[in-house]
Amino acid sequence: MLPIIFIIPIVQLLILSYAVTFEIKSIKLSITDNDNTVASRRLTGHFRSSPFYNIVGESSDQRDGAEMLHKGSAHQMIVLLPGFEKALVKGQPAHVQVVTDAINGSAAALMNAYTLQIIYDYNREILAEVSPLAGLPVKLTWSYWFNPQLDYKTYMVPGILVLLVTIIGMFLSGMNVVREKELGTIEQINVTPIRKHQFIAGKLIPFWIIALFELAIGLLVARLVFSIPILGNIFLIFLVASVYLLVVMGIGLFISTLTNTQQQSMFISWFVLVIFILMSGLFTPAESMPQWAQNLNMINPIAYFISIIRMIMLKGSGIQDIMIPLLILAGYGSAVLSLSVWRYRKTI
């Protein structure tokens, strides 16, 4: 069991960090250029030379492009109608049609943004040629703080680390008590003078240590394999993790005091975990969720820890910056643990 506990999370970290990405590296584009002039070819040339686009079809009939979108062999199509160049020369608006497969909404938004950026650049070139002195009235420059390359892994890996220790904490501790109920050993424990809090502590401490070990290995992998910066104090991460683990393990233990079989316990733990993970802001920013969902996140320990660990690792936040969420976690932890001690019954 012990090798499994250590190997699986590392594999998970490696796979998830490489695979779970919203970056789009290759947009399959279908082009229909019915103008076929210097101006139109110049625009399509921009797409051809971009590393993000892969031209998968070119046809004079835009129905071919639509067909490819239907089949899923193209992500996006652009259509230029006859008269594109003529309109530009006359100084009238010229039209470009862009159609995007939006089954995956966030991917579609990204593809659209890339495409608009290319058309915008093209626009600027033409303006500069027509009146070289005009230029654009406002010049925008920007910089991205805390993750300058907008590297997806920098954002994801700390969150995935949180998931790893969460799964370890919640499942191992929770399953263990129910397993004793199934085996019948708990009856032998219940006829001994052991105190309830001693029993819960016994179920807590070993897995708490294992999970912290797991976090240490995970941080090492994050640093060595993914070169994720750890700007803040590493001991602060462990301090937060040790408090956080009390919360998730407390939830796991509480579930196991309510259930009688590993199956029941597994089912409820998964239910709780999936909701917490999806709402945590790991995959989607919590700020863009509806207000009621954000309110619900007040009881989501994963949301607290993910935002804290990102602050410490990427921003270098110190203890005073994370004091409030840390205190909330501490209060939460003592509440759920007391609840499981109270709920654990030595009499049937």
């Binding site: 085996l183 009856e187 032998q188 006829v191 003078p193 009499t347």
Partner: peptide
């Protein structure tokens, strides 16, 4: 009950050592 538990030993129908 807890005072009783200090004074007794119990061997249940189901096997109850840690296997």
């Amino acid at each position: 009950t807890e005072a009783i538990k200090k004074q007794i030993g119990y061997m249940s129908q189901r096997f109850s050592l840690y296997e």
